[in-house]
Design a protein around this nucleic acid. Sequence first.
DNA 1: GTCTATACTTTGATAGAC
DNA 2: GTCTATCAAAGTATAGAC
Lengths: 192, 192
Amino acid sequence: MARKPAAGTRERILDAAAHLFDQRGVHAVGMQQIIDEAGCGKQLLYREFPGKDQLVVAYLERSAEAWDRIVTGVCTAVDAPEDRLVELVRAVQGMAPNSRGCPLRNTHAEFPDPDHPAHQVSLRHFRRVREQLRDLARRTPAADPDRLGDRIMLIIDGVYVNGSTLGSTGAAEAAVGLAGDVVRAEIAAAVG
Amino acid sequence: MARKPAAGTRERILDAAAHLFDQRGVHAVGMQQIIDEAGCGKQLLYREFPGKDQLVVAYLERSAEAWDRIVTGVCTAVDAPEDRLVELVRAVQGMAPNSRGCPLRNTHAEFPDPDHPAHQVSLRHFRRVREQLRDLARRTPAADPDRLGDRIMLIIDGVYVNGSTLGSTGAAEAAVGLAGDVVRAEIAAAVG
DNA sequence: GTCTATACTTTGATAGAC
DNA sequence: GTCTATCAAAGTATAGAC
């Protein structure tokens, strides 16, 4: 375990792969293109990643980490749990229009085989996000926190999908308002 | 135009293709598998569909027609425009858990190249659905019908994506309630 | 010795011919 | 309905640069 050929090699390859995957999808990108983009040799790539599957899994895990960074960013910027949920929707609504959609969702659609590692990793991510959002909702005085968390997840998925395909319509902007309405309604249901 | 080898040939091939595409995704299904499933010769398939691209396009158009059938079904079953919107959400929420998600959305994710016909056909469908829902919303006394239509579309996409991956959670069921809340809120905004 | 660049092998899919 | 040409992509091995 003492040998590390070059410190940032793995990250550089992953950068190149992620860029291409985000842009054109996984199936459409060949290993050679990633090698060209990374400016490395074939040997090095296959030393870091035994196969394309492992590379895709690493890409998904990195995308999941990017999501976590958004969550922690929102949580440090905003204190009130009910505001955090709305801000998460706002964050996604801001990125969606210039993206091709959620990397995890897109890759999940590209690998429908339940036995494929990419399918499993993305599915695990979805479950984890659901728990994240439910946890956040539990810190609000909502009548049914789980339902609130799930509704926010539904809105986030809807905004991501819609924004990335239909672009920044007035509709996508209204999603933040929708999330606010949903949060208020759940809290009002607890009080009333 | 006089020769039609067998009346239902095209439909039978399309049935087989749609079944396999829905189940395993487009990329994962080879032409040979479709031929086997349809029980026809290769010649016949390539006479009806010059290539896989055309077959995929036909599959997408048929999926879009299936959506239209759902819309007209709801519209004949329910008269009030505001109820129609909610019932559409309920219809999707009912199909999502046992599906692999929206065929149009999945195929769209499988063909990120904007020049690919499959990409264009699915994108056109999304725009058309947006107009459908806005038209429906315009028949309600909503304050901002376009926004209402777009919000319903957002909920539909969210329910479809969530239900197909996470299964039938209490969350997916709550989507119908969410849609109802959204419709009522928009109408209340017009009155108030 | 470690990395790059290239040639080769194998696999699987489209598409056409018979 | 089988058989074949063609092509693209995943890996593997090998030759060569610093």
